[in-house]
């Protein structure tokens, strides 16, 4: 070790070496004198871990967390019990005999009306609804928001106001007219029709989200791109898109959870064999024939909730960041 240090020091010029010695020379007296800090409190203030404030704060947090987690716990536990064990009535007890049969039954055997192929059919339908709806609505809304924020055009503000007002009109008012319109263009009862409905209903909030996000980006960036000769699409794809990952994540989460959890539109605009997972779940849980299979119901519910749940887990951090970013400037 010391060898390498000597080798390193060799190339030093006299003056540099001298300077180094001088510096250490001035440093030593201060070191010999020792610390200049006098008696009494010094440095950072010590904090007690078990202070009253901490007990109240973390105590409350733990209680609230347990309160929210308890139903999930009951669901998971119940879904892994057999029916005899459930009949014992102790819903908080962990399963004595873990079984995954209810899960299998919920997924592929439970009966809804005439079909007895469980949730799997609904899952496939939901995916077929979800993917195109999310992609289509986000593409359109992001371009909308970008145009509204950056390319001020005549009537742009009016268009935006109408869009936002549209968000406040109750769904119930629009359902029947939409049914008629879909029927007239021959899309009533099809997945395509439902995708269109989801895309339209997602438009106000998504457009607002994207508009605010793009408006919060420095305007000079947009001006610079225009001076550089970039057009509408070039600025969108090469300048704006690479900078807007957080807001896209927010939009994806909003749309995935919103569309996946949708029940009303699914019931109204599709037919029984095209029902999304939520409708299928309802039909399983609410079927009135035979005994109520709590374990199957619980398993089916968890299965249905898995998609939004996993979306939150994967992108929670980005979600918070994006919401904050979009909220800064309106």
């Amino acid at each position: 070790m010391s060898d390498t240090i000597i080798i390193k020091e060799k190339p030093l010029t006299y003056s540099a070496a001298q300077a180094a010695r001088d510096m250490s020379g001035t440093a030593t007296p201060a070191g010999e004198k020792g610390s200049r800090v006098s008696e009494g409190p010094s440095g950072s203030k010590p904090e007690k871990t078990l202070s009253r404030r901490n007990i109240i704060l973390y105590g409350t947090l733990i209680v609230v967390a347990l309160y929210y987690l308890l139903p999930l716990y009951v669901m998971v536990v119940t879904s892994m019990k057999g029916m005899p064990e459930i009949r014992l009535g102790n819903i908080f007890a962990p399963p004595m005999e873990v079984t995954f049969e209810p899960w299998v039954k919920a997924w592929s055997e439970a009966c809804t009306g005439l079909n007895c192929d469980g949730l799997s059919r609904g899952f496939l339908n939901s995916v077929q609804i979800l993917v195109p709806s999310v992609i289509l609505s986000i593409i359109i809304a992001s371009v909308n928001g970008y145009a509204l924020a950056n390319w001020k055009f005549k009537g742009g503000e009016l268009f935006f106001t109408i869009l936002i007002v549209g968000a406040f009109i109750p769904y119930q008012v629009m359902i029947y007219p939409i049914v008629i319109m879909l029927r007239e263009i021959g899309l009533y009862g099809s997945l395509t029709g439902l995708v269109i409905v989801h895309t339209i209903f997602g438009m106000p909030i998504l457009t607002l989200l994207f508009r605010n996000y793009f408006a919060s980006m420095p305007e000079e960036l947009f001006k610079a791109a225009r001076v550089d000769g970039a057009g509408f699409w070039q600025i969108y794809f090469r300048i704006m898109l690479p900078m807007s990952l957080p807001i896209f994540v927010v939009a994806i989460i909003l749309q995935v959870t919103g569309i996946w959890n949708d029940f009303l539109f699914g019931v109204i605009f599709t037919k029984p064999d095209l029902y999304p997972m939520t409708v299928q779940l309802n039909n399983i849980v609410n079927s009135t024939q035979g005994v109520i299979e709590y374990n199957v119901n619980m398993a089916a519910t968890i299965l249905t909730g898995l998609v939004p749940l996993s979306v939150y887990f994967v992108s929670g951090k980005l979600f918070v960041r994006g919401i904050a970013a979009g909220a800064v400037k309106g």
Binding site: P218, E220, L221, K223, I239
Partner: peptide, 11 residues
């Protein structure tokens, strides 16, 4: 044109 906030493309 040169802008106050530089307006360089960050990516």
């Amino acid at each position: 044109m040169v802008f106050q906030s530089y307006a360089l493309y960050p990516q």
